[in-house]
Every structure is written in structure tokens, then in C-alpha cells.
Write a protein that binds this DNA or RNA. Structure first.
Lengths: 191, 191
DNA sequence: CGGGGAAAGCTAATGACATTAGCTTTTTGC
DNA sequence: GCAAAAAGCTAATGTCATTAGCTTTCCCCG
């Protein structure tokens, strides 16, 4: 019988993979221990708590996501950049549903701040994506919040079968991003 | 010692109140039984399961929400109607965070369809709100999906302290709704 | 080469949870 | 007033996360 000899890195990696494959809710300490060939209490040699594990998955998700968004934004500007970033955001959420879900599992994460800076980095990328509109600060923050809310809301509803009609979801997403871009062009602040 | 003599209606009502006051995660069968002065297994005389209870909370939340949106939309049209409905949506989520959270707790709800029709009713209200734009059917569904995604995403991030900067969140919400309206006016479908 | 300490595993136990089975009490309808 | 249904109860099970305390394994240093 082979001893595992694990380290925190491997544990988090396995948890990320399990979350993507089986769902975040199925990623329990028991299931993770089973998958790793050890007993549940042994996991505490590598992680502080269940909440800390979910926070670690979330942190990794945010880092990966930031990288994808950066790549999508590189060498693009204006509407093209916004579409590229939006598509990259949605693609990441689909490819790594567990990591993405952890990112938004605020309930279990509260207090574990491992992912605070990673979240800020995402906002920086979004901000850079909007550079061409040259927004001054109240409007800039409004735009970032709106973009993030729209992306998160769409992906969240989509991931949970929130869109019943069998019309193309891709098209609806493109239309939403176009609407936000139209809003940026219109530029009118709060009436 | 007073016997409770409960019925399903009262149990769901108490669960809704507890969810709003203590949070949906704190609304366990044990805590609910404690609050009602009975033992946990006795709850099964009134509900089928924990999942069914959450689904019942969600159904009530959707019904209440539909009513609020209907009221907000009545006698209004165009951008005014959209703003009124959006504000009503956000206000409901703030006033009844537990019910609203249940509405989007797709994981525990899956399979309990008590809330299916209520969800459809919400979409009907949103559709009516957009009447003035006279959208034909692919664009109409895109607009509804986009509006719902934006509202849900914003409220969801807001509820979980997703907006760090201390700039006014009200203003950001108004700006987002304005952007969506600008998108409706621009009307361009997917490029 | 050998020993000692740290790292990483283990078993056993606890307390919260949902859930089932089966019993008792209360209410209600005739 | 009585019988049956409705609504409560206790006891037990299985799944969680988590803690305490023990043992094994590895690695470094003398």
C-alpha cells in the first residue's frame, strides 16, 4: 500500500479537479480524502478547514480567470476587447464550473482572505478593458460594476439551467454585451 | 406546555421568516424545529424533505417578487417602467434576502418543481415591461435574458459584499439599467 | 551509519445535520 | 363518546467537519 505523502499544493489541486468534475457541493473533505487515498482527518495536515479549502479553490479560480481575461484583452481595444474579455469570462466559467462556483461561494469563504488580492486583479483587467472610453472615476467604477454584474449574472443563470427557452444562449450573451457597449457609448450617467 | 398543532403553511411561513432574518444557510430543519417548539422529525408531517422546504421558500419568493414587479410595472412604460421594475427587483432582494437566496439556490432545489410556474410568471412581467420596444421574438428573448442576468448578477454581488469601493451602489445600479436601456434603443442584434 | 525530531499518516470520539421507523398523544368527525 | 387520522414523540442511522492523541515514516545532522 502506497503512502500518499501529500502537500497542500496537491490537495488543493485535487480539490480543484474534483470540484470541476463532480461539482463544488460534492467536493467534501470525505470525498477528497477518499480520492487521495487517505483518511479525512489527515487532510488537516495540509489545510486549515473546509472553508479554507473552498477559499483556496476560489483563489486559484480567480487567478486562472485573471490570466484568461488578460490574454483576451491583450492587443485589443474598444468593443472588440470587451467582447473578447466577456467571451473569455464565460468560457472559463464553463470549462471550470467548480472553480468558478467557489469564486462566488461567498457564504463559505467569508473571512478567508486568500482570494482578496486576486479579486482586485480581475477588476484591474476589466478597468483596462474599458480604457478606450476614457471614463472619469465615478462612471468608470459604475461601468466595471455593471460589466461584472452582467457577466456573473448571465453565467450564473446559465450554469443553473436558468434559461428555459431553447433559443441560442450564445446569441443572448452577445446581445447583452452589445447592450452594455451601447450603454458605454451613450455614456449618460445617472439621470 | 402548549402543543404546536402546525400545518404546512405555518411551517413554510416560519421558514421564510427565519431565512430572511438569520440567513438561508442558518435555516436548517433543526433550527426551524427549535423555533417552532417541536422536534426535528415532526417537521416531516408537514414537509417532504429539506430540499422541498427550500423549494417552497423559493416558490413563495418568486410569487412575492412577481407581485412586486407587476405593481412596479403597472401604469408605466418605456425606460420609466424598466427602472421601476429594476428598482423593485433589487428592493425585494434586499428586504427578503433569505427568500431571494432560495430563489437562486438551484443546487438544493433541483427536481422540486413547485416554483417552475412562478418563475415563468416573472419572465412574463419582464416581457411586458419591454413592450414599448416592440421586439420580435429572438431579440425579445435576448432582452429578457439580459435584463434578468444583469439584475440577478448585480443583486447577487451586492448581497455578498462583492462591491468593495465605497462609491454609491445605488448610482451604479441606475447606471447599469440605463446602459441596458441604451442597448434596447440601439437595438442592434448580434453583429 | 544511526538516531532524533518533524512531517504526515492513523484511530477514536464529538456534535450538527437530515432522515427513517415505529410508538403515543391529540384532535376531529360521526 | 369513540374511532381513526393527524401530529407529535423517542430512538437510531449515516454523512458531515472537526479535535485529540497516537504511530509511522522520512530526512537531516552528527
Amino acid at each position: 500500500m502506497k503512502r500518499a505523502r501529500l502537500n497542500p499544493e496537491q490537495v488543493v489541486q485535487a480539490a480543484c479537479d474534483m470540484a470541476d468534475a463532480e461539482g463544488l457541493e460534492a467536493t467534501t473533505l470525505s470525498a477528497l480524502a477518499r480520492a487521495l487515498g487517505i483518511q479525512p482527518p489527515s487532510l488537516y495536515r495540509h489545510i486549515d478547514s473546509y472553508g479554507a479549502l473552498i477559499a483556496a479553490i476560489a483563489a486559484r479560480g480567480l487567478e486562472d480567470l485573471r490570466e484568461r481575461l488578460s490574454s483576451a484583452a491583450a492587443g485589443r481595444s474598444g468593443p472588440t476587447a470587451v467582447h473578447a474579455v466577456a467571451d473569455a469570462y464565460r468560457a472559463y466559467a464553463h470549462e471550470h464550473p467548480g472553480r468558478y462556483a467557489a469564486t462566488t461561494a461567498f457564504g463559505t469563504i467569508r473571512g478567508h482572505d486568500a482570494y482578496g488580492t486576486a479579486g482586485q486583479a480581475i477588476l484591474d483587467v476589466l478597468s483596462a478593458t474599458l480604457r478606450e472610453w476614457d471614463l472619469d472615476d465615478p462612471a468608470r467604477i459604475d461601468a466595471i460594476r455593471g460589466l461584472r454584474a452582467a457577466l456573473h449574472g448571465f453565467v450564473s443563470l446559465e450554469r443553473s439551467h436558468g434559461f428555459a427557452m431553447d433559443q441560442s444562449v450564445d446569441g443572448s450573451f452577445t446581445a447583452l454585451v452589445n447592450a452594455l457597449i451601447a450603454g458605454l457609448d451613450a455614456g449618460g450617467g445617472p439621470a
